[in-house]
């Protein structure tokens, strides 16, 4: 159910029915998607759903066992060396040389990417400036804190001015402030025309992406802009609406809520409940809650969040999978 964009920006990544099997196990199953120039494409999915595998395929690191993909117009498998010259990649685990300093790591990558000796220093200064790591030049990479490590990795991946960056969970395990800073940096770079393909677990990061793909058990379930996804009919079915219900005892009241036949779904969000209910049942819901021993509830209609989108779609897909497996 891909949401199509008909825009005239160039297609940077084009994946067509890309699959990858490891033995009997299919890690990526017929995934098709397009990423246009300037997009920040957020690739979401639970652990082990195939995010890293698809990213590796798109970087020319892993051979697809089915389908084909082009990156910047080049086939990712047949022409992988050309692809590698024009992309930047940050792998999931920190993979710079811990016993080399910030500058030494940068100098190494500048050399590897064949930046002419004359330009090398200027180019290194440029990326140091961009990621703001000026004060740490002499430090060993291994001694940097998580956030700075990621900035250094980003700098190394940027030194050859790639048009497209692949970042595999760049914010995993770094503190919230560093996380926000890193994202601001990504926007900054996107503003300079760099396209991003980023995997993440975090919903708030997903909200900031221009486009999102959601992969679940190796299959791409949905992709589009966050706004488009929230309006998907499957997420809020016809005749239903989403309510935010404020009630003192959320956990206990959710059990009661789930017994009402006009409630389709209920999820706890901190101290409130997000309820998917038949349209026009707000009053009834408050009354029924009071009758069930939860007085003083308040309810107001809200739009779907991305988390709603993923939770709903995941549940649907899990049900479908269970049915498929039961049929086999």
């Amino acid at each position: 159910m891909a949401v199509n964009n008909f825009e005239d920006r160039p297609v940077i990544i084009h994946a067509d029915q890309v699959s990858r099997r490891f033995g009997n196990f299919t890690a990526v199953d017929h995934v098709s998607l397009d990423v246009l120039e300037g997009d920040i494409f957020g690739f979401l999915g639970p652990n082990g759903s195939g995010k890293t595998t698809l990213m590796r395929i798109l970087c020319g690191l892993l051979r697809p066992t089915g389908g084909h993909a082009t990156v910047l117009g080049k086939d990712v498998y047949a022409d992988s060396e050309a692809v590698k010259r024009s992309i930047g990649y940050m792998s999931q685990q920190f993979s710079l040389y811990k016993d080399l300093s910030v500058m030494e790591n940068l100098r190494f990558y500048a050399g590897i990417y064949g930046i002419p000796r004359r330009e090398r220093v200027a180019r290194m200064e440029e990326v140091i400036e961009i990621v703001g790591i000026t004060d740490h030049r002499k430090k060993l990479a291994g001694n940097l804190s998580g956030g700075w490590k990621q900035r250094l990795a980003l700098a190394c991946a940027l030194v050859h001015r790639p048009r497209l960056m692949f970042l595999d969970e760049p914010t995993a395990g770094i503190d919230p402030v560093a996380r926000r800073d890193l994202w601001n940096l990504l926007f900054d770079l996107a503003g300079r025309g760099v396209t991003f393909f980023v995997t993440t677990h975090y919903m708030d990061e997903a909200e900031r992406c221009s486009h999102i793909g959601y992969i679940y058990y190796s299959k791409l379930i949905v992709y589009g802009t966050p706004a488009e996804l929230k309006l998907l009919p499957d997420v809020t079915p016809k005749g239903a609406e989403r309510l935010e219900v404020r009630v003192p005892n959320v956990a206990a009241s959710m059990r009661t809520l789930n017994t009402f036949d006009y409630v389709l779904d209920a999820t706890i969000f901190a101290d409130v409940l997000h309820v998917l209910a038949e349209q026009g049942c707000t009053r009834r819901l408050i009354a029924d809650l009071e009758a069930g021993g939860f007085p003083g509830a308040e309810a107001k209609p809200i739009p779907a969040t991305l988390e709603d989108v993923f939770v709903t779609l995941t549940r649907q897909r899990a049900l479908e999978r269970a049915q498929e497996q039961a049929n086999v």
Binding site: L96, Y97, I112, Y113
Partner: peptide, 13 residues
């Protein structure tokens, strides 16, 4: 072992 080879593999080395 340290994963640095994967990073090298996506460069034009």
């Amino acid at each position: 072992e340290q994963g640095t080879l994967e990073q090298l593999m996506v460069t034009p080395v």
